[in-house]
Amino acid sequence: MTIARPALEPGVTWAPLRLPPISRTTLALFAGASGDHSPVHIDSDVAHSAGLDDVFAHGMLSMAYLGRLLTANVPQDRVRSLTARFTAVTPVHGRPTCTATVSSVADGIARIDLEVRLEDGTVTVAGAAEVAV
């Protein structure tokens, strides 16, 4: 079976990864899987005591979603790097969408600009990946 993959050419935008709303169950499961049991991610009382409206998603959960988008479009063995900068929180019940655009190709390496954005337009993660072409 051949998997159709998008072209690695500058300007190509991949199909977005639209995720369901972040639930408390998702946060609890990710805490267990990652070992990150920071209470601001899973305990509403702690989040409120820190001045927050409620718990929010782990930044690394959003980065994992970017990795999922990346490896759905490029074979894993071609990924050379994946970086991210966390720019805003993803609140519980937020609906993230991950996007990717090929920004350049040179010397056998494609640079992919990655982003996680909420429905209101807030960018929560800005990232990039380098993949062998």
Rank of each mutant, 00 (worst) to 15 (best):
P75Q: 04
S49G: 02
V12A: 07
V116H: 07
W14E: 00
A110Y: 12
G59R: 02
L29Q: 14
A28Y: 09
M63S: 08
V105I: 08
N73W: 01
H93P: 03
L52C: 08
G51K: 03
P16R: 00
G94I: 03
A15N: 11
T71W: 11
S49T: 08
L61Y: 05
S44Q: 14
L70H: 09
H58W: 04
R68F: 03
Y65I: 00
P6N: 03
T90C: 11
D113L: 12
F30V: 06
A64V: 05
V74F: 03
V46W: 05
D43W: 09
L52F: 09
L19E: 15
A84L: 06
R117W: 05
R85A: 02
R78L: 12
V102P: 02
L114A: 10
A72Q: 04
P10K: 10
A50S: 14
T26H: 13
S81W: 11
L61H: 05
T99A: 14
V79H: 02
R95M: 13
P96D: 08
R24F: 03
A31Y: 06
V116Q: 13
I109S: 11
P75S: 11
D43M: 11
A4M: 06
R5G: 00
V89F: 15
S23N: 11
T71M: 06
A57R: 01
P91G: 04
R85E: 10
V40K: 06
F86E: 02
I42Y: 03
A88Q: 07
I109G: 10
G108F: 14
G11H: 12
F30A: 07
E9C: 09
A106G: 05
A57D: 07
F86R: 03
S104Y: 09
G11D: 15
S34K: 07
I112K: 01
V40M: 03
T87W: 04
H37G: 10
A88P: 06
A84Y: 10
N73L: 00
S34H: 09
V89I: 15
L114Q: 14
V55L: 00
L66Q: 11
G51S: 01
A4C: 00
H41E: 09
S44P: 12
R78C: 11
M63R: 06
A57K: 04
L61W: 13
T97Y: 07
G94F: 05
T13N: 01
A88C: 09
E115K: 07
R24N: 12
R111G: 13
V89L: 15
T101N: 03
S23R: 08
L69Y: 09
S44L: 09
S81A: 14
S81I: 14
S62N: 07
